[in-house]
Design a protein around this nucleic acid. Structure first.
Length: 574
RNA sequence: GACUCAGUAGCUCAGCAGGUAGAGCACAUCCCUUUUAAGGAUGGGGUCCUGGGUUCGAAUCCCAGCUGAGUCACCA
């Protein structure tokens, strides 16, 4: 990287690093630095009268400094939080040589540097628990200035808040915004709580293929890739449902997977092209059992995270205390539109849609029409956790037909805050019925429904061997995390949300290419700083304009260079 | 994909009846007490997102593009 591209502060930090090296201090030492205390332990457990923490070794990042003559304070931040350091010149430099304090600490260290300290805990006159530092070790020099976020009385100043930068440079976001770190700690706790719940029941955590030759188990546009050795197309999975069911056929009675799925569709605050779903399948159960299981799981997650079932979400409080309300889809539609759609034909449904002001198109079948009515008129009303049950068969090609109501299936979706959180069925295990449903999907596809499912012949073969009655459930982990951590955007619960790639800097011609034109090195730097990255770009400018701009730049930036003559500039561009 | 808003110093943001680019923090030099959004003094730092246009003159007005956010469309 050429000097011209670095900011003043970056140059200063690089110089500081070089000075450290010149003093014989390695800015990136290799040796282990064994730590015995975390910041949070000092904050929570240090008591002066107990005289504990008198021999601590800590490491972390310097997040703030207050330098006063021969004593200073600094904020050390480790994974657990922050603790104040007290550094006294004559203690870290007992002899005549005060270099470590005056030079190394005061001048060469910066906010963002990673250091190790040895010392003892004490309380300052202001009453803050702190570490009295006896020994200071540089563990890693930081070459880029970190945003400095300050806070007083809960008020945050100069927050690092630009969403683009926060998502692109999540590492910076995590360093300076503690609530961000907290969200991700909670995300892991959600997953751990669920995993523990499943393992207690003896269910088996499994892994199934991400690269699939038939993208099945859901209706969505897949990402496509190509396998060279086999010379076949492969798809990134849109769901893992069909593989988990194959394992139930194989004799496992409870399997689950935390799975990344991929869908090549639009992105917004609730959709990312790759996202995490947990799917679980349990043999000899039905969707009623699964409802109880699901609400127990979710209540448990809420309690593990918050110690209560009541969780803030935006301006609402969601109460995850079970049992959740259960409403059939028909009742939901009756409740919010006044129409009883039981037994209605496709034509009648289309008519109802017209009356409700819902747009339809001819490719929509009965199921799709009902789905539209529910989505437009009902879904957003279900703020508190509610199971919507018994979906029309047309919308549920993998679901067993309802045991008593014709035209419906044994399916539920869990709605929270007006959004789908989980989806579950009594799984269709009748291979003849399943084949017919797939063929119906094929007809929909030919009719123009581009999200209809493919037929997976091997899956049908598996069902023909016999799958026990099974209930399965899938739950969006990203969405669950959003609900449980009060984040309204999926980007805030993914470490690295998908972004358009940053424009990579244009390729820059080497200095020597410019110098071949007859330019001196100092002017090459000026020309590059003015934005000419290639010799070619330079040649496109009129010599007179370049001459003017060069002299102007020299003057404006007080470079103090001797201006070239117009003839010289002419000769460069010749 | 459509519309709306935004892009100015390392960070947060002012400046927009067009007339020499500003503040706070951060940074540098100096003073300093166990200080805490530390304080005081001085100073350096900018392709005002990019490219066109209007104009004697554009950060500011107009057009196009890039990136992001929001709304909608699409989408379990």
């Amino acid at each position: 990287m050429s000097i011209a591209e670095l900011s003043e502060q970056e140059l200063i930090r690089r110089n500081s690093m070089q000075k450290l090296v010149d003093m014989g201090i390695d800015p990136y030492p290799a040796a282990e630095f064994p730590v015995n205390t975390k910041a949070i332990e000092i904050q929570e457990q240090f008591e002066p009268e107990k005289n504990n923490f008198q021999d601590v070794v800590m490491a972390g990042r310097i997040m703030g400094r207050r330098i006063m003559g021969k004593a200073s304070f600094a904020e050390l931040q480790d994974e657990s939080g922050r603790v104040q350091l007290y550094i006294n010149r004559d203690e870290i430099c007992p002899g005549e040589d005060k270099t470590l304090y005056n030079e190394v600490f005061k001048k060469l260290l910066d906010i963002g540097d990673i250091v190790g300290v040895k010392g003892y805990a004490f309380t300052t006159q202001m009453g803050e628990k702190s570490i009295h530092v006896r020994e200071l070790t540089i563990l890693s020099k930081s070459l880029r200035p970190l945003p400095v976020v300050k806070e007083k009385d809960g008020q945050v100043y100069d927050a690092f808040s630009d969403p683009e930068q926060r998502y692109r440079q999540r590492y910076v976001d995590l360093i300076v915004n503690p609530q961000v770190k907290d969200t991700f700690l909670k995300r892991t706790k959600i997953i751990n709580t669920m995993r523990q719940f499943f393992n207690e029941q003896g269910y088996l955590e499994v892994e199934t293929p991400i690269l699939q030759s038939i993208p099945g188990g859901a209706a969505a546009r897949p990402f496509i890739t190509h396998h060279n050795a086999l010379n076949i197309p492969l798809y990134l999975r849109i769901a893992n449902e069909l593989y988990l069911k194959r394992l139930i056929v194989g004799g496992f009675e409870g399997v689950y997977e935390f799975a990344k799925d991929f869908r090549n569709e639009g992105m917004d605050r609730t959709h990312n092209p790759e996202f995490t779903v947990m799917e679980i399948y349990v043999a000899y159960k039905d969707y009623k059992w699964m409802m109880n299981f699901t609400e127990e799981m979710i209540e448990r997650v809420a309690l593990a995270l918050h110690g209560t079932t009541e969780v803030q979400l935006g301006d609402k409080i969601i109460n995850y205390k079970r049992p959740f309300r259960r409403v059939t889809m028909y009742d939901a539609i009756k409740e919010h539109t006044g129409y009883d759609i039981a037994g209605k034909s496709e034509e009648e449904l289309r008519d109802i849609c017209d009356k409700l002001g819902i747009e339809t198109d001819p490719s929509m079948g009965k199921g799709k029409l009902i789905d539209e009515i529910f989505g437009e008129k009902c879904e957003h009303h279900y703020i508190q956790p509610t199971f919507i049950i018994d979906y029309p068969v047309e919308m549920s090609p993998l679901t067993k037909k309802h045991r008593s109501v014709p035209g419906l299936t044994e399916r539920f979706e869990l709605m929270v805050n007006g959004k789908e959180l989980a989806n579950a069925y009594s799984e269709l295990n009748d291979p003849i019925d399943q084949r017919e449903r797939f063929e119906e999907q094929l007809r929909l596809s030919e009719k123009g429904d581009d999200e209809a499912m493919f037929i997976d012949q091997d899956f049908l073969r598996a069902l023909e061997y016999g799958m026990p009655p099974t209930s399965g459930m899938g739950i969006g982990i990203d969405r669950l995390t959003m609900f449980m951590t009060n984040n309204l955007s999926i980007q805030d619960v993914l470490f690295f949300p998908q972004m358009k790639p940053e424009k990579k800097a244009d390729v820059v011609d080497g200095d020597e290419k410019f110098m071949e034109l007859g330019m001196s090195a100092e002017w090459v730097e000026v020309v590059k700083k003015m934005g000419f990255k290639k010799v070619k770009d330079l040649k496109e400018v009129k010599p007179a304009k370049l001459f003017n701009d060069l002299c102007g730049f020299n003057k404006k930036n007080k470079l103090g260079l001797n201006n070239p003559t117009a003839e010289e500039v002419n000769s460069w561009l010749a």
